[in-house]
Amino acid sequence: MAMIFIAPATVGFVVFYIWPTLRGAYLSFTEYSLLSAPKFNGLANYDRMIHDSFFWNALGVTVEYVVINIGLQTVLAVGIAMLMYRLTKSITVRAIILAPYLVANVVVALVWYWMLDVQVGVVNTFLGWVGIDPIAFFGDSHWAIPTVAGINVWRHMGYTALLVFAGLQMIPSYVYEAAEVDGSTEWKTFWRITLPLLRPVLVMVLVVTMIGSFQIFDTVAVTTQGGPINATRVIYYYIYERAFTRFDFGYASAMALVLFAILAVVSLVQLRLLRARESDLA
């Protein structure tokens, strides 16, 4: 009976995850132009990767994105969650905070793309009123990645805040009462009680958002398309370009497999370092 119940999920998992992963792993050892049969070429793709400056650039750009995106997003999410927890329990507020997450990624990206235009964008008009010269957010290579990261922080922070908020509600109120009795300040309570007890939830949130963050693609695809020069050619976009515009599917598969390995290691390290399994409550 149990088999019957897990069968649909298992079939989906095998067909849409396991099989493509295995096939991708196989294709990473081939030269495959999509339109003719794959030819086995051993480690040639991996060798090419080591010497491919675009690949290393893509990795660097992606890491820059992840650091800005996750750093800013986590701090803001914890902040918003604390505000919600301490100041309001209103469902309306929670819904509003979640609203950006409900808009499709591509729509968010395009709307910001227009708003941030240097000549006709509304944001630069506002900046002009306060005496700041227009900034080419997407066009300047130094601004491009922070801009893309900022847009995704804006979209995701509400959702992340809700996850953190759920974690906050799991902290028993007696520890706060005890803190109050002992005369702890709000600031001290946050650092000594809230954050440590929130750790298991934060780790989960960090692992999940970081994996998502490494997979940044759609915002770049509809706005800068890798430019200016190579400033936003993130690894997923580079893989996509190699596979579907340059028909270099074997090489793209190899890069995808390397990204998979990187994500696995990063996640494991996070889980280890932050002791995700244990709670300080015990």
Binding site: W114, V118, Q119
Partner: peptide, 21 residues
């Protein structure tokens, strides 16, 4: 002519032309 960063910062060249830029 605008800098490359400005030219590539958002809406396309035709839209900016339409806005009298």
């Amino acid at each position: 002519m605008p800098t490359y960063a400005q030219a590539k910062s958002g809406v396309d060249v035709t839209t900016s032309f339409g806005a009298g830029k």
